[in-house]
């Protein structure tokens, strides 16, 4: 177990260290850390600290958040197709962002601008609805009901998103389309710091979950028989995974595919034990998204690809290969 942990840890740390060194332009490391030049004039330092480091950090945060949320949703809903998008939290985050863009909401809080704030509020709103539904459905213990409710909520919020896009002027519609493609180029540290707050709360929840998830993913009755407080664990799982999703989407936009493919990739490597799958997904998800973003910003340099396109184009075939190599 230690070996697996350190392998995934090394992968994530390596990605974090190497990725900022590569980009569409060449920078000199000596110049980056040259203290004798004022920062305002040091273009190498600005490329490193303003353009690259924030996006590597946000890729790490978004990648690990979405991946772990995917693991938790898949176990909670006992469905391999579950992802951070499944319960409508992403759709809520998208709706918040699209409303802020379309109606030119103009406020900021501690250096974080309106769009990510509105996006996170949207995800919390969606979480509120899902949570209320999960409390109501307690009479019967059917994850199918929660799943259907999530799919319905996603469709509903998605329709509202399209309605807002439809009635907006096309310059705004264009901006919303761009947002929906996802982008990690945050160019500042404040949004990352802000996203870290709910993300930390989410990870605090995740730490308590491995054993419960192992048992719940088999069946909630047998989990209860083995002494798991199923109701409470499911709520912690639901809230933590939703918080992580909301934080990730409000920071990077709806980066597709990470939350569904990384958990399965990791399970193919480590097996199904959540004590391994959870941390390994966090680390591998970070490395995976850093890698995809690196491709996104260098493949067609100096023009960039939206990172959400790269995750699916790279992740899809890789996943298919793993899947069919085994079978």
């Amino acid at each position: 177990m230690i070996v697996t942990w350190s392998a995934f840890g090394a992968l994530a740390v390596g990605a974090c260290l190497l990725a900022p060194l590569v980009g569409s332009t060449t920078i000199r490391l000596a110049a980056v850390f040259d203290r004798s030049r004022p920062f305002a004039d040091n273009i190498d330092a600005q490329i490193f600290f303003v353009a690259r480091l924030p996006r590597v950090l946000s890729a790490a945060l978004v990648g690990s958040g979405l991946s772990v949320a995917g693991v938790v949703f898949q176990a909670l809903l006992r469905n391999p197709l579950a992802s951070p998008d499944t319960l409508g939290v992403s759709a809520g985050a998208a709706l918040g962002a699209i409303l802020a863009i379309t109606f030119h909401l103009d406020f900021s809080l501690l250096g974080v601008s309106a769009v990510p704030l509105a996006s996170f509020s949207g995800s919390i709103g969606a979480l509120g609805i899902v949570y209320a539904l999960s409390v109501v459905r307690r009479r019967g213990t059917s994850t199918t009901v929660l799943l259907l409710a999530g799919v319905t909520l996603t469709a509903l919020l998605g329709a509202v998103v399209r309605f807002v896009q439809y009635v907006a002027d096309f310059t705004e519609t264009f901006q919303t389309v761009r947002w929906l493609m996802g982008s990690l180029d945050v160019a500042a540290y404040a949004p990352i710091g802000a996203a870290l707050v709910p993300m930390t709360a989410a990870f605090a929840g995740f730490i308590t979950l491995p054993r419960a998830l192992d048992l719940i993913s088999v069946g909630s009755e047998s989990a209860a028989a083995r002494g798991v407080n199923v109701t409470q664990s499911e709520r912690v799982a639901l809230v933590s995974a939703s918080l992580a999703t909301g934080a990730a989407v409000s920071l990077g936009g709806p980066v597709s595919f990470v939350g569904i493919v990384v958990p399965h990739l990791v399970r193919l490597i480590t097996g199904a034990d959540h004590r391994l799958v959870l941390p390994a997904s966090a680390l591998f998800g970070a490395a995976f998204l850093i890698g995809c973003d690196l491709i996104a910003r260098t493949a067609l340099a100096p023009v960039e690809l939206p990172v959400g396109i790269v995750t699916a184009i790279i992740g899809g075939p890789f996943f298919l290969w793993l899947l069919f190599r085994r079978g």
Partner: peptide
């Protein structure tokens, strides 16, 4: 063209003109 932060830094424009439409601001 979608401008990344890195591209803004390396293209180093002498002037930036930013357009805002109608009542948007």
């Amino acid at each position: 063209v979608m401008m990344s932060t890195e591209m803004i830094l390396t293209r180093a424009p002498d002037v930036i003109i930013e357009l805002h439409y109608g009542a948007s601001i």
